[in-house]
């Protein structure tokens, strides 16, 4: 750039140093994914003695005719559905809580938060029975349909907080122009709450991608397996584990998450200008 700024340099040095601490475990995992399986725990060296791709080949092959490619596709499908579900249902509920007034609003809001406070372990069994009665076991439905019905209170609350920061004069002006609540939701509030929507998208992507417990319970057929379930196949506490393959596939499974984050953080952070409101 123009002149040498020592303070700027110091800032970069600090950011990079902390960044390395953040990244060290990831780098270790990537390095391990290129090691021979016996080397991973027997040596403390960071670099592989010799680079091998065998972990990637072994891991990708998976089992019984299904490669990891299939698991990636299944995960993408599941994630896409969950994102659509969360964006629609949570933004609608959030709009109601943030911008509309109706009977028992605060009671409902408290209930919404309350549903987040019970550890899921004790609701697993009754929930399983509900889905069994619906005939949804071993389908994606138990993982998807609830998202369309706003069970993720986290995102509703998140959007409520963002929508409440939208100045009131904006919505009042729109109302005077004869804008009804549905148009207002679609044309004004949603564009203005874009950072919250993008955040919801990113988090839904990452959390659904990584969540294995509900996928474990409801998906039994290997052909429906997701990446999260596929990764757990490499481990067995009672026998031998394929660590090399696990690291290799874990590394691959982080790539989509990383790409999504890099791609969407632009929309999240780099300027939603006033101009974009008029769609």
């Amino acid at each position: 750039m123009t002149t040498f700024k020592p303070r700027r340099l110091l800032l970069h040095v600090i950011i990079i140093c902390i960044g390395l601490i953040m990244l060290y475990p990831l780098l270790w995992m990537i390095m391990s994914s290129f090691k021979e399986s016996t080397e991973i725990f027997q040596s403390n060296s960071f670099w592989p003695k010799k680079f091998t791709l065998s972990n990637y080949i072994e891991g990708w092959t998976g089992l019984s005719g299904f490669t990891f490619g299939r698991f990636f596709l299944n995960s993408f499908f599941l994630v896409a559905m969950c994102i659509i579900g969360n964006l629609l249902s949570c933004s609608m509920a959030a709009y109601a809580f943030a911008k509309l007034s109706f009977a028992f609003k605060s009671v409902f809001f408290a209930l919404m938060l309350g549903t987040l406070m019970l550890p899921f372990h004790v609701t697993v069994v009754p929930q399983y029975i509900v889905f069994k009665h619906l005939g949804w076991i071993n389908t994606y439905l138990p993982l998807i349909v609830p998202k369309f019905l706003g069970v993720e209170g986290f995102f509703i609350f998140l959007m409520v907080q963002f929508m409440r920061t939208i100045p009131k004069d904006l919505s009042e002006a729109a109302e005077i122009d004869g804008c009804g609540p549905i148009r207002m939701y679609w044309k004004l509030i949603l564009p203005l709450a874009l950072p919250a929507l993008i955040t919801t998208m990113i988090f839904t992507f990452i959390w659904t991608w990584n969540d294995f417990f509900s996928q474990l319970l409801y998906l039994s057929d290997v052909k429906m397996y997701t990446v999260a379930l596929g990764l757990r196949m490499f481990l067995d506490a009672m026998g031998q584990s394929s660590w090399g393959a696990l690291f290799a596939m874990s590394t691959l499974s982080l790539i989509p998450l990383f790409v999504i984050f890099i791609f969407f953080q632009r929309y999240l952070i780099e300027g939603i200008t006033a101009g974009s409101i008029k769609g």
Partner: peptide, 23 residues
């Protein structure tokens, strides 16, 4: 023959839930 499997801990968690759910 339909097949289900899991690593040690996962297997028992799932089996407990399935058994409780009559499935």
């Amino acid at each position: 023959v339909k097949r289900q499997f899991g690593s040690w801990n996962d297997y028992w968690d799932k089996l407990a839930t399935q058994t409780a759910g009559g499935n």
